Amino acid sequence: MLGAGDLIDSAALAEFLFKCQFKFGGVRKAPEGSPDPYHTYMAIATLSISPPPNSDESLQLAHLDVLWNTTEDTARWIREHVPVSARKSS
């Protein structure tokens, strides 16, 4: 889906995610399910990558660098301060 952001209806996606919120914390896979850490993380990441149009300040999340799975500021810091050889997986 990377590079296909113009195909996402951000408003509809956010509306669905809000229906999946659990009143005591967390996000569920579907409105009738149970919240779990995986779907909570994915919901936050989704709203960071594709925020709904005209969202208020409470939805202004730091932009996510999807390659590094971290904020763009942190990814930039890693590129500037961590040697390439240390970033390669074994």
Rank of each mutant, 00 (worst) to 15 (best):
M1A: 15
S50K: 05
S48H: 02
D6G: 15
D36G: 06
K19W: 07
A14E: 01
E80G: 06
D6T: 10
L61D: 00
Y38W: 11
W77T: 05
K23M: 12
L13G: 02
F16E: 05
S50L: 12
Y38E: 11
P31D: 05
D73T: 10
I78Y: 07
S48G: 09
C20K: 02
A75W: 05
I49P: 03
L47V: 00
F22Y: 13
R79A: 08
S90E: 13
L7S: 11
G3R: 05
G26T: 01
G33D: 12
G5D: 09
P51W: 02
A75T: 03
S48V: 00
G26N: 02
A43H: 01
E32M: 11
D65I: 02
H39R: 09
S48E: 04
Q60S: 09
P35F: 04
W77H: 08
A62K: 11
M1D: 15
A62M: 13
A12D: 07
S10R: 13
D6M: 08
R79I: 04
K29H: 08
D73M: 10
P31Y: 06
V82Y: 10
L47K: 00
G26P: 03
I44R: 07
T74Y: 14
L7Y: 13
R87L: 09
N69F: 14
P52I: 02
T74A: 11
L61N: 02
S58D: 08
S10F: 02
Q21H: 12
H81C: 04
P52W: 00
N69I: 15
S34Y: 12
I44G: 03
D65F: 02
E80P: 06
D56T: 01
G33A: 14
E72N: 08
R76N: 11
I8M: 08
G25L: 02
P52M: 06
E32Q: 15
G33R: 11
A11N: 09
I49E: 06
T70L: 08
I44C: 08
P83E: 06
S58K: 07
M42E: 08
T70Q: 10
A4I: 07
G3T: 03
R28I: 04
D56F: 00
R76A: 13
E32G: 12
A14M: 06
I78L: 12
G3F: 04
S48C: 08
D65M: 05
P51I: 00
A62F: 09
P52S: 09
M42N: 10
G33T: 11
T70D: 09
S10E: 11
I49M: 15
S34H: 15
K88V: 12
S50I: 10
L2F: 10
S55N: 13
M1C: 15
